[in-house]
Amino acid sequence: MGVYLGNVGNVELIRKSLEGVKESIVNPSDVNATRDRFSFDFDEGYLISGDLVEISTTDGTTLDFVGEDIRLTTQAGDLLTTQAGDVLISNLQESATDGMFYVFVDDIGGVKLYDNFDDSLEGSTSGLVALSAITRDIPISVEVKNRGGRLLGSVREYEINTSREVVDITALSDQHRQQYSSLISGSGRLSAEWDYLKEGDKEPVNYLMQLILRTEIGSSFRAKFYVKYENTSAASGSFNAAQTNDQLWWEFDAIVTNSAVSFAPSEVILGNIEFVATGPIRLRAKTTPVERLLQEDGSRVLLEQSSDSLLLETDESP
């Protein structure tokens, strides 16, 4: 048996929205082409910097205020990216009726569009999608899309609780209480050092604290809570190099139910989040299968000294 410490865990967040589409109208005065910023009517909290949104026109016309860049997507609507994570852009010089962008939302509700997540968090000038002035009202629909997962930064600890309800089905004449399994529910909490800027490629915990205030489209997110993350090892006990990249994790959709920030002199500011799972809770594993040496008929080659079978030699470097 291996002995694992908490540092082999990790938390991966996938931004999502359970709710539908927001419709609005972009007026000519809403677009500031000089600053590549525009706005439309949405309640505060509807968009959070870093969200991936799909913007479409609802009257079939083109998104005239968006620059000429056209992002390439799969048939399923996922962005095509390079191995480095950069979004692939078509060089065709024409406008489209829809597009997917990362957004940066400033203090007064102005929206800037970006072609990558990192720049959208910072509101920087790089990665900014150029906007053009328009001369007509453009009806649009905006939908927050699911997006690839990112690790949550500076997590101190997390805890997952799963429970199954039971229903009493004890009947007359029974000598012992009888229970029948019913619904499964899950909840948990996590604590992370507070930050509001990205740390490398990691999501800051401030995002989860913003989620609970997101009244219009809910406070949902999808998460993977890793019991063992890739490239980690047991602290002691039995462990072989082939297990290094094994991964085990809980995966579920959740809703933030409580967020708190603790302040104390000379102590690190911590963001504490509580959540409840919604939908199925899965405990998944991605492990390296053991490669055995087989005979021609497919049966294992058994060792003489034990009941184990002969394994293929593998490269044990991680």
């Binding site: 089905i169 004890t170 009947a171 007359l172 004449s173 029974d174 000598q175």
Partner: peptide
């Protein structure tokens, strides 16, 4: 108590009776 309870309908002892 309920452990001693039974319900028979038309001579047939009923299963999974929770109360009478």
């Amino acid at each position: 108590t309920g452990r001693d309870g039974r319900l028979l309908i038309d001579g047939l002892e009923q299963v999974k009776v929770t109360n009478w």
